[in-house]
């Protein structure tokens, strides 16, 4: 029982990070018809912004994280939208998809070239330690990750559903033409979505790097798993993508522990295939609907 609880917590903590990245996938798809195959590299990069801040500029960790957030908003939000998505989107979805693959390679190789090809230790925001509960030894770091990511997801959901700005973004996602007629500045709403995605990946990066270490190729696995999570949960529903993230995190851990650690990625891919076959719009998605 103790081990099950422990696996569940570890799975939910990792799943919460996948959920942040998967939510970003869904956000960009809903508002800008952009499938961002560089999402994994987007999660990888902010950790290096933080390391550059602490090691090159000598900033304290808090300031370095703030700097990383600003840089991520500028590079992964504003610049990505203006330089890649805006010019290519009128050509259709496929050119954007290919361009995001290229962006992913560019980011990965740039970090390798200008920072390091080697894994880097990354400071943890939470001190280590364990909590003994019902026969399980629970990691305080896992609990903190789950709390922080969970609060961020909750705040995002409240923002999207309870604020005027969030509802304007919803309207832009559901029907941009009508939203424009109603006086919603849709272009700005789309930009906000990109900025929100940049903030999500920054948080994911800061939460995952202390355990995974910061490395230029971390995005390969993260991007794949976040993409699977978004599809499994429902690409056209932020809530679906978030639930998909948690589900994938838990399935991955339980699959590796009780079925096979050799085929842990295979287990996720089987889940993906089953969902595509049985419920193509995802477990929590809805057919023919666009909403954030």
């Amino acid at each position: 029982m103790g081990n099950v609880l422990q696996l569940l917590l570890a799975g939910l903590a990792t799943g919460a990070i996948y959920a942040l990245a998967a939510a970003g996938f869904a956000l960009l798809w809903q508002t800008a018809r952009t499938i961002n195959f560089a999402q994994g590299e987007f999660v990888m990069l902010p950790a290096f912004f933080v390391l550059a801040g602490t090691e090159w500029l000598g900033l304290p960790l808090g300031l370095a994280i703030l700097l990383a957030l600003v840089l991520a908003l500028l590079v992964l939000g504003l610049l990505f939208k203006r330089a890649i998505v805006d010019p290519l989107l009128p050509q259709g979805v496929l050119p954007v998809v290919i361009a995001t693959i290229a962006v992913g390679i560019l980011l990965k190789e740039s970090v390798k070239e200008f920072y390091s090809a080697e894994a880097q230790p990354f400071p943890s925001l939470v001190a280590g330690g364990t909590l003994h509960l019902a026969g399980a030894v629970l990691s305080l770091q896992d609990i903190a990750v789950l709390l922080v990511a969970g609060l961020a997801i909750l705040a995002m959901q409240l923002f999207l559903t309870r604020t005027r700005l969030g509802r304007m973004m919803q309207a832009t996602a559901q029907n941009p033409e009508v939203a424009l007629v109603l006086g919603i500045p849709t272009r700005r709403m789309v930009l906000y979505t990109f900025l929100l995605n940049a903030a999500l990946v920054t948080l994911a990066s800061i939460l995952i790097s202390p355990v995974y270490l910061a490395k230029f190729d971390n995005g390969e696995t993260l991007g794949l798993i976040a993409f699977i999570a978004a599809i499994v949960g429902g690409f056209n529903q932020i809530r679906g993508a978030i639930a998909g993230g948690f589900l994938v995190g838990v399935v991955d851990n339980f699959g590796a522990a009780y079925l096979s650690s050799d085929y842990r990625t295979g287990i996720l891919l089987l889940l993906l295939i089953a969902v595509i076959l049985l419920r193509p719009h995802g477990l929590w998605g809805r057919a023919e609907e666009r909403t954030v």
Binding site: L7, T14, V211, T221, D252, N253, G255, A256, S261
Partner: peptide, 8 residues
Amino acid sequence: SDFAADVV
């Protein structure tokens, strides 16, 4: 990257 299951 993830060794949670292995540790358990």
